[in-house]
């Protein structure tokens, strides 16, 4: 049986991939959860597009402040040393190449690193892009955090994106429930695979062509309960 990670465990895995001292932006949705799994003792400075450096999760039981929120409009708290600034400065940090890593969600990732994560087809509702396009080209590393396959089983990592792009050739690493895949000059390289998963099966569940790294590892995470299902 394949021992896939749950979404909280994927957040843990992403958090553990980020170096001490890095400036990191987290996209709305699943990526915001990375904030909860920073390894003990590692200093990482999280950037929020709405003008915050040095955010941390709101302490349990603490009173939320409506003037202190993250990109998903959820209440947060601040580390000593944190800073506030306006939107032009915030996006100068993003677009000027000052952010080391951003973590985004994805509808599709292309074999060449193309990213589509802002617009689904056949929808009446208004398009919304937020800061995703700025981050796709601005951040030095673009990490993607997503389920390996959608609810219908369709792979998210595809040969070529069919949805409108957020950015071209921008993705550097993909973290899914069953694999960690890096984009190299010569294609997509599997760095880690879930316990019980054979490379052939991973390839079958993926649209893009994969290559297994010689020094690949097993993708594991500590026991962490999956996120509670939220009522919509």
């Amino acid at each position: 049986m394949v021992e896939a990670l749950n979404r909280n465990q994927v957040a843990w895995r992403v958090a553990n991939d980020i170096d001490e001292g890095a400036f990191v932006n987290l996209g709305v949705g699943m990526p915001l959860n990375v904030l909860n799994y920073v390894p003990e003792g590692r200093e990482i400075i999280f950037h929020s597009e709405n003008g915050v450096l040095g955010m941390k999760p709101l302490e349990e039981g603490a009173e939320p402040n409506l003037d202190l929120i993250n990109a998903g409009k959820q209440p947060i708290s601040m580390l000593p040393g944190g800073a506030f600034f306006h939107h032009s400065d915030s996006f100068a940090m993003v677009r000027g190449g000052h952010i080391d890593v951003c973590v985004l969600g994805a509808y599709e990732v292309g074999q060449n690193g193309d990213l589509a994560n802002w617009r689904l087809p056949n929808t009446k509702s208004a398009p919304a892009v937020g800061g995703a396009m700025d981050l796709a080209y601005g951040a030095r590393q673009v990490y993607i955090m997503c389920d390996h396959n959608g609810r219908d089983g369709a792979p998210k990592i595809v040969k070529q994106c069919t949805l409108p792009l957020t950015g071209a050739k921008c993705v550097t690493k993909v973290f899914t429930d069953i694999a960690v895949i890096e984009r190299a000059d010569d294609g997509m390289v599997v760095r880690e695979m879930a316990e019980g998963l054979e490379f052939e099966e991973l390839q079958e569940r993926t649209g893009a062509e994969l290559r297994l790294a010689n020094d690949w590892k097993t993708l594991t995470a500590p026991d962490i309960a999956p996120p509670e299902k939220r009522a919509r």
């Binding site: 597009e49 939107h87 032009s88 915030s90 996006f91 993003v94 677009r95 208004a126 398009p127 919304a128 892009v129 937020g130 800061g131 995703a132 396009m133 700025d134 601005g138």
Partner: peptide, 11 residues
């Protein structure tokens, strides 16, 4: 609606 990326909007 004129949709503009957030950083482009600010700039």
């Amino acid at each position: 609606l004129e949709l503009t990326p957030q950083g482009t909007l600010a700039e």
